[in-house]
Computed example of a mutant assay.
Amino acid sequence: MINGKRQAEKKTKKDEEAERHRADIQRKEIETFGQVSKADPGVLSQSEAWWRDRYRWLKERGYQLRPRYDPDWKPSWFETKKDWFTSEDGEVPWYAHILDATRITDGSFVTLKLVSKSRHPYEVDITRYFSSEPIASNPANHCIPVIDVLQVPDDDDDVLLVLPLLREYSDPRFDTVGEAIECFRQLFEGMQFIHQHHVAHRDCMNLNIMMDAKDLYIDSFHPCQPRMRRDFKGEARHYTRTQRPPRYFFIDFGISRRYDASDTNPLEYPIWGGDKTVPEFQKSNAPCNPFPTDVYYLGNFIREDFLQAKMGFEFMEPLVNDMVQDDPAKRPTMDQVVERFDAMRKELSSWKLRSRVVTHEDSLIGGLFRGAAHWARRINFIAWGVPPVPN
Rank of each mutant, 00 (worst) to 15 (best):
V159S: 09
Y296E: 06
E235L: 14
N141Y: 04
D362G: 00
P93M: 04
I147R: 15
R227V: 08
C204D: 04
A23C: 01
L163R: 02
F291R: 08
E347Q: 15
L187H: 01
R247I: 13
P145D: 09
D326K: 13
D83I: 01
V278D: 06
S284H: 05
L161F: 06
K82C: 08
A286E: 13
F174E: 07
Q336N: 11
R202L: 02
V386T: 14
Y297Q: 07
P287K: 00
F193M: 07
A309H: 13
W94D: 15
T111G: 05
P226S: 09
V324M: 04
L353I: 05
L58H: 06
G366S: 11
R68A: 00
I147D: 09
P279F: 07
R227F: 12
F253R: 04
A376E: 10
Y55F: 12
Y55C: 06
Y259H: 14
Y69D: 01
R229E: 11
K330C: 12
R237G: 09
V389R: 09
Q151P: 11
T359P: 03
I2N: 11
A376H: 12
A261G: 07
K11V: 01
D275C: 12
F184M: 14
F281G: 00
F78H: 12
K330T: 13
D156T: 14
D260W: 02
S132G: 09
Y297I: 03
S350E: 15
P153L: 09
F341V: 10
Q196D: 15
E179F: 07
F291H: 00
A136G: 00
L112W: 02
H120V: 04
E179T: 02
I251D: 07
P226Y: 09
F193Y: 15
A261Y: 04
I365P: 00
L187A: 04
I379D: 06
N206A: 10
A329T: 13
L160I: 15
E19L: 12
Y169T: 08
W375Q: 14
E168I: 08
K5E: 14
Y297W: 02
P270C: 06
K346V: 05
G312F: 03
I255G: 08
N138E: 11
F232C: 12
P332D: 07
F174R: 03
G90R: 01
N391K: 14
S47E: 04
V43H: 05
I144V: 15
S363N: 10
P387W: 06
R202M: 08
D40P: 02
F249V: 07
L319W: 06
F193T: 07
P266V: 02
T102V: 13
T127C: 14
L267T: 05
D362I: 03
F221Y: 15
K38G: 12
T359R: 10
P387C: 05
N321Y: 13
S262V: 03
K117T: 13
